[in-house]
């Protein structure tokens, strides 16, 4: 953490837009007639990272590692257990609900499922204009004019503004979701698995659209995904999560060439190469399953599945340290990993 502070001071050229510190979200496990809390699912457990203005930060990890919870907690769609989220110096998590409303337009979200994220009983124009209406921007007529403009910008014909969501395809629905977020002129958009539910050709279209919009509107993205090739395509830096903890943060090229955490290395080796003639020999098959976040392993959470684990790993939790410029890793043996990577 100290190094993170230093980094902040030394780094003047790129401003930090959002800084997450010691964020925790525990969900209670209730049991019995009286709904007693018998334990906690530590979905997000003490994570810290920051997002620079104008960059795309990828957030990867397997299912259930807390990626989505992280995204939703930052936006206060679910209330966190502890921690702080500083947006331009303001701690969002300590704001009252009323004050938070002022910041809502600036922090937007695109959801994973284009089917459940649009109200089936509202017309496209009303879905897209909802945020404007809530923020009391413009008259009804002006709002619909803006809707037309933004529909056009995301590649939807404004002629479709009176249609209902079920009359659109998956890709078109996701474009409605993007227009709905974009129309509020946000600074940060959390893309929560925004392309995972779409098929590959549509994924590429939506990714390119997001890329264009980023340039035109100076957007900053927190891009949550489980597909490494998608994250590699769009991100500047990548955060790797495992079981509610951040294990590694690095520039995307650095991360793919020189992963310093064994989990990152295993994750990268699982990424398929789109060429049937290539036989991968470097594939690392992890033993066992992801442990339950209700009862995580002691020390380093990855140690039961790690091929490099030593006794210290089960006793002492490795802190997330900046071991090389802009490369953070939480592993006791990152030096050995450098040697392995050659």
């Amino acid at each position: 953490m100290e190094k993170l502070e230093e980094q902040k001071r030394s780094e003047k050229k790129s401003e930090i837009l959002l800084e997450v510190k010691n964020l925790k979200k525990y969900f209670p496990i209730k049991a019995g007639v009286f709904k007693r809390t018998v334990g906690w699912v530590k979905a997000v457990d003490d994570i810290s990272f920051f997002i620079r203005k104008g960059e795309t930060l990828g957030l990867v990890g397997e299912s259930g590692c807390g990626k989505t919870t992280t995204g939703q907690t930052i936006l206060r769609l679910i209330e966190p257990t502890a921690g702080s989220v500083h947006y331009n110096g303001v701690d969002l998590l300590s704001l009252s609900k009323r004050k938070m409303k002022k910041y809502r337009p600036k922090l937007q979200v695109i959801f994973q499922d284009p089917y459940s994220s649009l109200d089936p009983r509202m017309r496209a124009k009303d879905i897209i204009a909802e945020g404007l209406k809530s923020a009391h921007i413009g008259s009804r007529k002006e709002r619909y004019e803006m809707v037309k403009k933004y529909m056009d910008r995301v590649g939807l014909s404004p002629l479709y503004m009176n249609r209902f969501p079920h009359e659109f395809s998956g890709g078109q629905r996701q474009r409605i979701g993007i227009a709905r977020a974009l129309i509020l002129n946000p600074e940060l958009i959390v893309c929560d698995e925004a392309v995972s539910a779409l098929d590959v050709s549509i994924q590429a279209q939506i990714l390119n659209l997001l890329d264009d919009l980023q340039k035109d509107f100076n957007l900053t993205y927190l891009f949550i995904a489980h597909d490494l090739s998608v994250v590699k395509h769009i991100s500047d830096r990548i955060v790797v999560m495992y079981l509610g903890k951040i294990v590694e943060i690095a520039n995307k090229h650095e991360l793919f060439i020189n992963p310093l955490h064994p989990y990152t290395k295993a994750l990268l080796s699982a990424n398929p190469i789109p060429d049937p003639t290539v036989k991968r020999k470097d594939r690392i098959i992890l033993q066992g399953d992801v442990p339950s976040p209700a009862n995580p392993p002691s020390g380093c959470r990855f140690h039961p599945r790690c091929w490099m684990a030593k006794p210290i790993c089960s006793q002492k939790e490795p802190p997330l340290n900046e071991v090389q410029p802009d490369h953070y890793v939480a592993c006791h043996f990152w030096k050995e990993m450098i040697e392995q990577n050659g």
Binding site: L77, K101, S117, S134
Partner: peptide, 17 residues
């Protein structure tokens, strides 16, 4: 449980609406 309810919250739509 539908995501459009959460989307409404993210857009700043008040609870009654």
């Amino acid at each position: 449980e539908n995501q459009y309810v959460m989307a409404g919250r993210a857009l700043g739509t008040p609870g009654y609406r």
